[in-house]
Design a protein around this nucleic acid. Structure first.
Length: 135
DNA sequence: GCCAACGTTGGC
DNA sequence: GCCAACGTTGGC
């Protein structure tokens, strides 16, 4: 069964639009143990929400895991990994942080509770709620 | 630009 | 192994 995730990225660094243009990207540069463990748990075909931090502060699209964890080529030392992601579809209506905060289901997500984590799991219910709000 | 949250580092 | 200092992230 597929799992659900959310990754965070500053649009000034790598925006969703750029991701779309590239068709796929290696999700490198994660240097946080908890985030790494989440990356490692990703399976091919899992669905991944794409969140723009700082600028926008909204979930803008959905991606899928196209390649499971492999060593992060940008890491010069340490045991770091990355995955390959492919964009699936943009949300018609991006779901902003404020909306999530006031939503009964989404206010308990790691995005709200652990604001600094950059890769986090979402439950099926939370994921479905984002899609519902993003239609 | 500020500040809170939190992860990491280093001295003891 | 504890904890203070420091750096980074991200919301406001």
């Amino acid at each position: 069964m597929a799992n659900y995730w959310l990754v965070k990225q500053e649009p000034t660094a790598y925006a969703w639009e750029e991701f779309l243009r590239d068709k796929k990207t290696d999700w490198t540069g994660v240097r946080n143990f908890q985030a790494r463990n989440n990356l490692r748990a990703m399976k091919k075909g899992d669905q991944v929400l794409y969140y723009h931090s700082n600028v926008g502060k909204e979930i803008v699209g959905i991606a899928t895991v196209s390649k499971e964890s492999f060593p992060d080529p940008t890491a010069t030392e340490g045991d770091w990994i990355c995955v390959e992601l492919k964009p699936l579809t943009a949300l018609k209506n991006p779901v902003c942080l404020e909306t999530m905060k006031s939503d009964k289901i989404l206010k308990d997500t790691s995005l709200i509770k652990q604001s600094r984590l950059s890769v986090m799991p979402f439950t099926k219910e939370q994921f479905a709620r984002v899609l519902e709000l993003g239609k």
